[in-house]
């Protein structure tokens, strides 16, 4: 039988899915054992037990100086920046993407502009943003927004353009104005793709968030990682990295769930 036609059973599929995770964990444990055997003071690859103890301490024991649980403060600050930045990008690109997709005049005006703007590396603009917006929250949020809005705008305008011509004509024969076509035909069919686009761009959004926090901040997940890097506190860094991964996964899963619940007509295509 050809390899392209061979499929694993259900149980085998679960084992196969778990395999890379197990391999990664095993590689880490082995590497950590080797280094700690050579030097018990080694900080580069702390033992899994050490990481677990650090994680429990970070999440439950308040910081002795401020009396606060720093990890929750960092999480809250970072998620807030992420939510506002991504939310702004989603709102801007939904309006702009629909306008570009629906209106030939705006398409001629903005399609090329957005294509060029999306080529600007957002991180290269970070110093400009710090100079213009200061070192506070605004510059971090704006970095996330301008980092992902061009991609989302292009994606959404393409999605609107991909709505079959037949539907657009049909709506007109039912008497729909441009506004009604936008609100009742294009918008509902674009929203699921907006959520899909946001899911795809969340990775980039996290990147911009952590980069901005690493450069100038006093609270946040990225700030903390780059702060404790000076002390080579790998146990804290790894705890934060795992925590960020868990958060990102949870957000992605939630968005997918919302998408499935809110757009049942999309069927299995989400």
């Amino acid at each position: 039988m050809r390899l392209v036609n061979r499929h694993p059973s259900r149980r085998a599929a679960i084992v196969l899915a778990a395999l890379p995770f197990a391999a990664l964990a095993l590689a880490y444990v082995v590497g950590s054992e080797i280094r700690l055997a050579a030097n018990p003071q080694d900080k580069l690859l702390p033992a899994p037990g050490t990481i677990w103890e650090t994680a429990v301490r970070l999440f439950t024991v308040p910081d002795p100086r401020s009396g606060e649980l720093l990890v929750w403060q960092d999480t809250w600050a970072s998620l807030r920046r992420l939510a506002i930045g991504v939310g702004l990008a989603a709102a801007i690109s939904l309006v702009l993407g629909m306008a570009i997709g629906l209106l030939p005049y705006l398409r001629r005006t903005f399609a090329g502009f957005v294509a060029v703007i999306s080529m600007v590396p957002p991180l290269a603009l970070l110093p400009v943003l710090f100079i213009v917006f200061g070192l506070g929250e605004v510059s971090k949020i704006v970095l996330i927004t301008i980092g992902i809005a061009p991609f989302l705008t292009r994606d959404l305008s393409q999605r609107v353009l991909a709505i079959p011509r037949e539907q657009m004509v049909k709506a007109q024969t039912l008497g729909a104005s441009s506004l009604v076509i936008a609100l009742r035909v294009a918008l509902p069919q674009t929203l699921p793709h907006l959520i899909g686009g946001v899911r795809l761009s969340l990775g980039a959004a996290w990147l911009f968030l952590i980069a901005a926090e690493a450069v100038a901040s006093d609270v946040g997940l990225g700030y903390r990682i780059f702060l404790v890097r000076r002390y080579l506190a790998m146990d804290i860094i790894l705890t934060y990295v795992i925590w960020i991964t868990v958060l990102a996964f949870a957000i992605d899963w939630t968005l997918r769930w919302v998408s499935r619940r809110a757009f049942p007509w999309m069927g299995a295509s989400l």
Binding site: A176, R184, V185, F263, W265
Partner: peptide
Amino acid sequence: VVFQRYSVFPHLTVRANVVAAESFATRRG
């Protein structure tokens, strides 16, 4: 008009597709 394909709106239920023939002609739909 009725086309060979894509003649009804996939995001509306069957009933809403018929109601759309009345509601789409209003100001906001």
